[in-house]
Amino acid sequence: MNDYKAIMIGGSAGSFQVVSRIIAALPANYPLPILMCLHRLKHIRSGFVEALSIKSKLPIIEPHDKEPLKAGRIYLAPANYHMYIELGNRFSLSTEDVVNHSRPSIDLSFFSASYNFKKKLVGIILSGANKDGALGLKSVTDNGGLTIVQDPKECQVPTMTTASMNATKVDYVFSTKQIIDFLLKLA
């Protein structure tokens, strides 16, 4: 296997259950950082991390600005901020305008992560009701990284995965189970 440096997951409506299953399956010594950019309701700012943490063996963190990125942690884009990865593997946050009606925007997170990690990034797009993330996943392909989308047939809302498949040639179309198996094989 290619020596990947990070995994980035984007999702929106219908992705919470999928993310919960993925997180629950990862062992406490998982060696890669997982970066998640998920749309949430603007006014539900607390409770999300706690809900995801219940099943997770890895710490789930909403990063602070300029926090260094570390392996074996799950990072979740904080509500109402865009989340970027800067060269030198630090997070940076921004409150600039919404993109695709979203802040955090999945596209923006993927653009910065693919620019930073190039071919060492695995990008995954899950269920979602808008097309935010499609151009982001294309940027992963364009930078030589590996791309996965959740099988649209399995998605509660397939808009995001379908848009991603239209925007770029994805490497794998996987069920949740297959995504989990793949991530475990990277360890």
Partner: peptide, 9 residues
């Protein structure tokens, strides 16, 4: 300035 945000602007 922070690189990513500046480039975006």
């Amino acid at each position: 300035y922070s690189d990513k945000s500046f480039c975006r602007r």
